[in-house]
């Protein structure tokens, strides 16, 4: 993954392209407390993903938002590596809720129809809710991984099927799907 190295704020090739990006995030659910971040690094030190994938650095993500590196933040695939453990939210001494900021930034990225495995998974998940009320695991998995990803699972799907553990292939939509869809539509209209 291209991008500045962990620990630095920005590489020389990244230029601020949206000085008001922080306001955009601040106005979204999850982003409200962004401005109070003091860059103490408690979030990153608590992050189990960063320990394995330093490209996902939550403290640095907040710094990049404040610096107005909009495109850099939204096009960064590492944005989708957050595992939503919320350790950072629990431990932040300034109650910035860093994990919720990830949610807000992903919301912007999804609204712009960004590509990649992360957005693909989120969209497949939401589509599945619209389609059945509850998610249809087999479909979400297939649409997220695609055939190539599924093949990389090797014998796992076969072993799961053998154990009776495989998710159902047939969808089982709730009776209330039309109601749920109407509710989701109404919420999207902002009515």
């Amino acid at each position: 993954m291209a991008g500045p190295k962990a620990g630095t704020v920005a590489s020389s090739t990244v230029r601020p392209d949206s000085p008001t990006f922080w306001k955009e995030v601040l106005g979204l659910p999850g982003g409200e407390a962004l401005a109070t971040c003091i860059q103490c690094n408690t979030c990153t030190s608590s992050c189990p993903v960063e320990a394995l994938e330093p490209e996902f650095n939550i403290r640095r993500l907040i710094a990049r938002i404040k610096l107005g590196l909009r495109e850099d933040v939204l096009s960064d695939e590492a944005l989708w590596a957050c595992a939503r453990c919320f350790a950072c939210v629990a431990r932040c001494p300034k109650h910035v809720r860093p994990g919720d900021i990830v949610e807000a930034v992903r919301h912007i990225a999804l609204g712009e129809e960004r590509e990649g495995p992360g957005p693909r998974h989120a969209r497949a998940f939401v589509e599945s809710i619209r389609d059945g009320g509850r998610i249809h695991e087999a479909r979400v998995t297939l649409e997220s991984l695609r055939l190539a990803g599924l093949l990389r699972e090797g014998w796992l799907p076969a072993r799961m099927a053998w154990r009776g553990k495989a998710p159902r292939l047939r969808r089982r939509p709730l009776k209330s799907v039309p109601e749920i869809r109407a509710l989701l539509d109404a919420a999207e209209e902002g009515a």
């Binding site: 949610e103 919301h107 989120a122 998940f125 939401v126 509850r134 209330s176 749920i180 999207e188």
Partner: peptide
């Protein structure tokens, strides 16, 4: 329905 599991929350919090 589904609780959203974070995905729906990201897509549309409302």
């Amino acid at each position: 329905g589904c609780c959203g599991a974070g995905n729906l929350q990201e897509y549309n919090p409302e």
